[in-house]
Design a protein around this nucleic acid. Structure first.
Length: 684
DNA sequence: ATCCTGCTAAACATAA
DNA sequence: TTTATGTTTAGCAGGA
């Protein structure tokens, strides 16, 4: 798996939790058999990883040498399965973690060998003749598929960024870099390999694989050919095999390859469309049993994994099962999209990186329009321990190439100042905490960023939930829809589902601003903006009595859990204050940030108005902004709704405006009224 | 240091 | 019984 689903995600919080459940959501589909550490890499891990990979590559080379010796003479009967197997590991490893191996490293590694580069070159060529062909095909293909799926699903989980010393911006930068590197390296490696391949003699290129790293235009062309020309070709009884698209007609063609190789040699890793075309027109793709769709005796057609004894039967299968029909066409299209997606992603990320680099170098004070988190930088992994790092100045400003994973850090380090951003993301900084700042603008601005980057959004769950609900056409969502929104909008929430889903549920219950409504079709959640403004915090429930404070409460409650509610009730209301007063207290007890809305309706209105304004469009229809509004969110007119929960919560009325309702009887939801206790508590 | 708040885990309840 | 959905509480950690 690209990323260990269950890995205990060190939450910024420190409460390291490991829900093995993890990532069922976004990852569910990714069941690649090969583990790729490509993501979830901490900064430090990166280094070790890098080293390991270097070793792997080196090992790989050694292996090749050995084999070479044994075989004296590069004969390519890819039948030696053991060798294949032997090589398989290193190769795949190298491929799987391309993002860390820079060309320079490769070079270095090569040079470290006992042999001269030239020798190595030769060796490599021969070896490639032996192994790489199939190997590469398979691995690369796998890799492509996996990464694609991964991207589609979770748009790459950048790094995990546990380093708490880095500013959030740095992290964003780092992530960006990683992403780009990943993509670039993928590209690079593929090209590299293909380049190597192309050098060797007597080998025809796995054309199909080429397409995987090719430019969209090329793909387009290809697709055109497939969809358009192909039919004709079929009729003509000729198979101009288009890189794996020739399946329909792929008739066993008599081997003859040398000529083809020539072409490869000329292209040598460079794939001009021209070259591709010429190559593709060569009808002998499967000559050496090296059909791109056939590896290790298995049909590599997406979704197929049929096993075949020999190449012939595979071809038969190919023609029968994967002929040019709707299904195959669709699959092909998907594959193309996959590739295009990758290309696109790469282009995008490159651009983004460029912008970031530029920005950082220029130290421009202006916010860049780049998709990096604008306002706040999220990042959950950052911690305040960062102070040390905060004075970025100190760090060496080593100019580095984007290819080196870590450097960007230092670079970023040196340029990014905490002040440059709205705030240094402490851990998960809640964006909307102290101010009912709508998160929508921020989300909007950084939408793409959050969608693609595995960073924790700096918003509280409550804010996010609210956002999700308000974004919906009906301003109401079922729990499941809320889940979906989370996963859709944030890469971060594509894993550890059990954790955040639980948090979502908890928040829904806990915050008064979320109102559960039932209709004929089930239940859904709406937002009471009024409440949201007032005190989005633990309104709903009992007083917050845990923690250092409120010990008395704890004691009381602990003694008789069963009586908790009663006790609280009596404590809260009875003894202390008149109901009316309590009501007002309740209002006041709401955390300070709501001050504006407490007390006078006027103020509240004002606050509300402001908020409305800030929120812009998204609020319309909801609370009419009136203080006295039933508060109960936008009940959809269409259904028969039935607000289950505290339909007419007393507080509702007290609302901002006041002390009125004081007489909430403990009848309905005792605990609902406990905030009053809370208020009292404060007094106590 | 204290208090407030958000997050997470967990226990528990309930309905499908 | 299992699963999804809700509710409530405890404890931890960050921020003011």
């Amino acid at each position: 798996m690209m990323q260990e689903a269950g890995t205990a995600e060190a939450t910024s919080n420190g409460t390291a939790k490991q829900n093995g459940v993890a990532a069922e959501l976004g990852l569910r589909d990714i069941r690649s058999k090969s583990a790729t550490p490509s993501s979830d890499i901490t900064a430090t891990n990166l280094m070790t990883l890098q080293q390991q990979q270097a070793l792997q590559v080196a090992r790989q080379l050694l292996l090749k040498q050995q084999q070479q010796q044994h075989q004296s003479g590069a004969i390519k009967s890819p039948k030696s399965n053991e060798k294949q197997a032997a090589l398989q590991v290193p190769v795949s490893v190298a491929m799987m973690t391309p993002q860390v191996i820079t060309p320079q490293q490769m070079q270095q590694i090569l040079q470290q060998q006992v042999l001269s580069p030239q020798q190595l070159q030769i060796l490599l060529q021969q070896q490639q003749a032996l192994m790489l062909q199939q190997q590469q095909l398979q691995d690369f293909y796998k890799k492509q598929q996996e990464s694609l799926q991964l991207q589609l699903l979770q748009q790459q989980h950048g790094s995990k960024q546990h380093s708490k010393e880095v500013s959030t911006q740095q992290l964003a930068f780092q992530q960006q870099l990683l992403q780009v590197q990943q993509l670039q390296q993928q590209h690079l490696l593929s090209l590299q390999r293909q380049g190597l391949l192309s050098i060797q003699a007597n080998q025809n290129l796995p054309l199909h694989s080429l397409t995987q790293g090719v430019i969209p235009a090329e793909l387009q062309q290809l697709w055109k050919e497939v969809t358009g020309t192909h039919v004709k070709e079929e009729f003509s009884g000729r198979n101009n095999g288009h890189r794996g698209l020739d399946l329909s007609s792929a008739s066993p063609v008599p081997p003859k390859s040398s000529h083809l190789n020539q072409q490869h040699a000329t292209t040598n890793g460079q794939y001009s469309s021209h070259a591709l075309k010429r190559e593709s027109s060569a009808p002998d793709e499967h000559t050496h049993h090296s059909h791109p769709l056939y590896a290790h005796g298995v049909c590599k057609w997406p979704g197929c994994e049929a096993v075949f004894e020999d190449f012939q039967s595979f071809l038969k299968h190919l023609n029968n099962e994967h002929a040019l029909d709707d299904r195959s066409t669709a699959q092909c299209r998907v594959q193309m999209q996959v590739v295009q997606q990758l290309e696109l992603q790469l282009a995008k990320d490159k651009e983004r990186l460029q912008a970031m680099m530029t920005h950082l170098h220029v130290k421009s004070t202006e916010p860049k329009p780049t998709p990096q988190p604008l306002n706040l930088v999220s990042n959950a992994t950052l911690s305040k321990t960062a102070p040390g790092a905060s004075p970025p100045l100190s760090l060496p400003q080593t100019p580095t190439t984007p290819t080196t994973p870590l450097t960007p850090l230092s670079q970023a380090h040196s340029v990014i100042t905490p002040t440059s951003l709205h705030s240094v993301g402490p851990i998960r900084r809640r964006y909307s905490d102290k101010y009912s700042m709508p998160i929508s603008p921020d989300i909007g601005q950084n939408k793409e960023f959050y969608m693609n980057t595995d960073v924790r959004p700096p918003f509280t769950y409550a804010s996010l939930i609210r956002q999700a609900i308000l974004e919906s056409p009906e301003r109401q969502l079922t729990l499941n829809e809320i889940y979906n929104w989370f996963t859709r909008m944030f890469a971060y929430f594509r894993r550890n589902a059990a954790t955040w889903k639980g948090a979502v549920r908890t928040n829904l219950s806990l915050h008064k601003c979320f109102v559960r409504v039932e209709d004929d079709f089930g239940s859904f959640w709406t937002v009471d903006n009024e409440e949201f403004i007032r005190g989005r915090h633990i309104q709903r429930g009992r007083p917050r009595r845990h923690g250092v404070d409120n010990n008395n409460y704890d004691k009381l409650l602990v003694q008789s859990p069963a009586l908790v509610k009663n006790i609280q009730t009596s404590l809260g209301y009875g003894p202390v204050l008149p109901a009316t007063f309590q009501a007002s207290m309740a209002e006041n007890s709401i955390p300070l940030y709501t001050t504006a809305s407490i007390g006078s309706p006027t103020l509240n209105s004002l606050a509300n108005a402001i908020r409305e304004e800030m929120n812009g469009a998204m609020d319309h229809g909801n609370s009419n902004g009136s203080d006295s509004s039933p508060g109960r969110s936008p009940l959809p007119a269409m259904h028969h709704i039935n607000i289950k929960e505290e339909p007419l919560d007393p507080e509702e009325h007290e609302g901002p405006l006041s002390l009125v309702t004081a007489n909430h009887s403990p009848d309905f939801d005792h605990h609902r009224d406990y905030e009053d206790d809370h208020g009292n508590e404060d007094m106590l």
